[in-house]
């Protein structure tokens, strides 16, 4: 029984990982790719860790799996925040068809911010 539930969780996790990586290849600019990474891949890895917890089923595996899930959730969202902020600050433009960029509007007056040339 545990093995069946674990296998189902593994399959869901690998599918989400695949969708996230397809998004990494298909989506048009850096910010959209970061979105795909922090949603799909993190969710897939969480499901894989949950599957491992159910599959192994000992107390130490469950505790370490929960710690791992907490770390992956916290660190990946923080890393996504840092990467997107750094990309915007270094002048990576938004993709074609973007609706609005209020961040660039507000950053115009700040010292040290260079408008990108493209």
């Amino acid at each position: 029984m545990n093995e069946t539930i674990g296998l189902i969780l593994f399959v869901i996790g690998v599918l989400f990982d695949l969708f996230g990586c397809v998004g990494l290849v298909r989506l048009p600019d850096v910010y959209n790719r970061i979105q795909a990474s922090t949603k799909c891949v993190v969710l897939g890895t969480t499901f894989l860790l949950l599957g491992t917890m159910v599959w192994v089923g000992t107390a130490s595996a469950i505790i370490k799996g929960l710690l791992c899930i907490a770390f992956v959730l916290i660190t990946s969202s923080t890393a996504a925040h840092a990467l997107s902020r750094a990309a915007h600050r270094s002048g990576v433009p938004l993709a074609e068809g973007s609706v609005i960029d209020q961040y660039a509007d507000d950053l115009q007056g700040e010292p040290g911010y260079e408008e990108n040339e493209s």
């Binding site: 969708f19 996230g20 989506l27 910010y31 949603k39 799909c40 969710l43 938004l94 609005i100 209020q102």
Partner: peptide, 24 residues
């Protein structure tokens, strides 16, 4: 979180990619 994963997967796998990005 699960809703977010499903939502982004749908937008990625859709052939025309119904995205409308912007910073608010």
């Amino acid at each position: 979180v699960i809703k977010g994963g499903v939502d982004v997967s749908y937008r990625v796998l859709h052939p025309r990619m119904p995205i409308r990005p912007g910073i608010v």
